[in-house]
């Protein structure tokens, strides 16, 4: 049974229909790369998956549980689906460890000592243990993004969504973040990544989904998809980004 199951997802902003019926099933441990032109609805799709946007039509299931509508409280949702944003969005007034501990403490009511232990574990995972007491302003973009990943992991989500998490980074800092994602993938974390890093999509993901004008236009395993695109739109897109 699929871990994530999306059926006929529709979303409009006013008159603009951004998602025009998305169907997608994702297995546990699968790494799915979502690619497509700017404006094709990739972010909106991810944001519907953790209900930062409410969709207009369709259903989202996580395992056998309905995730959308009022089926899950925000607290439950955050323990099922984590998200990392392009712009990090760390809390500037909290140190690295405080950023990571906040949600476990406040949302999960984890005892402080245990929350601290969890924070150290996930920070170790992203290689940020030495900067545990630094403030975000004292970190490079790559380091901030790794902390943001740790912060999401601290809630122990079943799925991690990543929305162009390297797009705001200086080129020399992209690698360290991709390495962290790659190690998560190897550990069996279920990942849904919107990315412009085609090499990463090809090498790390199990499946690539090409979105075009609010629909999944084409999807498949990375090798086939990149080398033998079936639709002219995908061929054009690949040509434009490679």
């Amino acid at each position: 049974m699929a871990l994530v199951s999306v059926k006929d997802l529709h979303k409009s902003f006013g008159d603009l229909e951004v998602l025009k019926g998305i169907d997608l099933e994702i297995e546990s441990g699968e790494v799915v790369a979502v690619i497509g032109r700017s404006g094709s609805g990739k972010s909106t799709f991810l944001r519907c998956l953790n209900q930062l946007e409410q969709h207009d039509w369709g259903t989202i299931h996580l395992a056998d549980q309905r995730l959308d509508g009022t089926a899950m409280s925000p607290g439950e949702l955050s323990q099922n689906v984590g998200i990392v944003f392009q712009s990090f969005n760390l809390f500037p007034h909290k140190t690295v460890v405080e950023n990571v501990m906040l949600a476990p403490l406040v949302v999960k009511q984890t005892p402080r000592a245990e929350a601290r232990k969890i924070a150290e574990e996930v920070l170790d995972k992203v290689g940020m243990l030495e900067k545990i007491d630094a403030y975000p302003a004292q970190l490079s973009g790559g380091q901030q993004q790794r902390v943001a990943i740790a912060r999401a992991l601290a809630m122990d989500p079943k799925v991690l969504l990543c929305d162009e998490v390297t797009s705001a980074l200086d080129p020399e800092l992209v690698g360290e973040v991709l390495l962290v994602l790659e190690s998560l993938a190897k550990e069996g974390m279920t990942l849904i990544l919107v990315t412009h890093e085609m090499k990463f999509a090809r090498d790390v993901s199990h499946r690539v989904v090409f979105m075009h004008q609010g629909r999944i236009h084409e999807s498949g395993d990375p090798q086939t998809l990149f080398t033998q695109p079936k639709t002219p739109e995908l061929a054009q897109f690949i040509a434009s980004v490679l």
Partner: peptide
């Protein structure tokens, strides 16, 4: 982004 990060983490 601050509001969204907080919401995504489950904060009320």
């Amino acid at each position: 982004g601050q509001h969204e990060a907080a919401r995504a983490l489950g904060l009320s």
